[in-house]
Amino acid sequence: MPLDDGGTNARDTADAPSRAADTTLSRSADASPRERSTARRRDRFRVRGWLPPLVVLVLAIGAWYGVSDWLLSPERRFLLPPPDAVVRVGFLDGENRAELLAALGRTAEVAGIGLLLATVIGVGLAVLMGQARWIERSLYPYAVVLQTVPVLALVPLLGFWFGFGMASRVLVCVLVAIFPVIANTLFGLRSTDGTLEDVFRLARAGRIRRLLKLRLPAAVPAMVTGLRVSAGLSVVGAVVGDYFYQQGQPGLGILINVYRARLESERMFAAVLLASLLGLVVFWFFGLLAHWAARRHGTDGDRG
């Protein structure tokens, strides 16, 4: 919800220059009251946007306390330790915090490398498929297969081939994250305006120029949308990869598994929270990136 609100605001501000241009043209006299009312509306919107999810958060934490303090007897409290215990044991204890943050760093690294590879390979494959229908027809089904095969089933196989360390973790990320990049980029490449294609044809622009100056730039918003989905998946892939490939330094997935085995539920909850937070931050970051791209792209304002 707060993310959506950020989106509305970004769009509002992106609209502002177009509105300003219109008013200088037609009626510069009444420009200022109009802009003032927009600003007021925006402020009210911000409060309205942030407040409801905040209320839900407070309620959720309240419910959490309710369950662990009242519903669970002390000897069963490890099933859901209260929030303050999770924070105290997981984050305020220096040693635990260092262990968790190091694991977070490694998981983020795996997810980052995986996403980068998925993006490079995915965009490359999409561009290749965008060149001719027959290439698309030959390759696309396998991209779909990649999406439908349960990656968990491939996990032992990948471990067999590439070892139970970093390489396999990254590979799981790539496998999980690549499809949205391929599908969205391809959609973006295919969605260029027919008239613009004609403009390029009349100027006798070759394939490469058409790709670089028309299709790829036109595909950017769709690509970023795909990237946003893939980024989230890549975090999932990294945690799953950790979970199964336990060689080398531990990531969050390994820690979660270890703490679970030791019934150290406060630390386990802290690790789970961190993993969720990583996903949220990534989602939020790519949301911002999407708005930024849309604004630079010029497709954000009114195109009429």
Binding site: V199, R204, R209, P217
Partner: peptide, 19 residues
């Protein structure tokens, strides 16, 4: 049929650029 990500000037230059 303009390229929305280009400025007006860059749009006007497009055909010359392609040639």
């Amino acid at each position: 049929a303009l390229l929305p990500w280009r400025s007006v000037r860059a749009n006007v230059e497009l055909l010359m650029e392609l040639r």
